[in-house]
Amino acid sequence: MQLLKSTVGRKILMAITGQLMVLFVIVHLLGNSTIFVGADWLNAYAKHLHDLGPFVWVFRLAMLTFFGVHVIFGTLLTLENSTANPQKYAVNNKLEATFSSENMIWTGLLMAAFVVYHLLHFTVRVTNPEISQGIDAVGRFNVYAMVTGSFQQGIIAFVYIGAMIALFLHLSHGVQSFFQTMGWNNACTRPVISTIGKVVAVILLVGYASIPLFIFTGILKG
């Protein structure tokens, strides 16, 4: 209980849930990358995941918990911080804080909204039913057709790339922040960890954004 009330306790909960979600987006990107190998690989990968049965739901509930804890405490901490700092300076020259560190709540909430859309789009498959119900030649659910069919539409590709920019901004502060919060940091490691965090954020941005970009530009054919 003390963990939930203490300022550092809540920070640690934010850091751990955040980092577990970072591990998820890394694995998710590795899975998505099968699209570059071909339709067969992506559809086989999706089938493999669905065949895990009850584990899929265990995993989904765990992710929902991490997501919920992270969003609730993130919002709470931000509200408390603005109460602690009611009057802003007339002139404000920041020395170390960055756009990404100062807008964690906004990039976070943007992504939360995106996750809801993303699940409706690709998991529940209600936003574009005309392209999301196909079956491939060997009877598997045709994920490849659904993804390419979606990203050929500029607006969907644009929304996905936008969300990935929010992810990039969130993680370029968030990854290094995790190490500081866990106390796994000192004056020597801080700049190195900070760089690694930014590199991870860039790799995820390039990796994820490349899929809608390649499909929309026609490099990856439907």
């Binding site: 300022t7 901490l77 911080n81 109460t83 602690a84 020395l95 170390e96 502060h173």
Partner: peptide, 24 residues
């Protein structure tokens, strides 16, 4: 006081050079 969110503005402003390694 508010909650630390690792902006490190404090270290930059500190007239005595107190390092954020102490926060870790």
């Amino acid at each position: 006081f508010g909650n630390c969110s690792n902006h490190y503005e404090c270290q930059a402003a500190c007239p005595k050079g107190v390092n954020v390694k102490f926060i870790a």
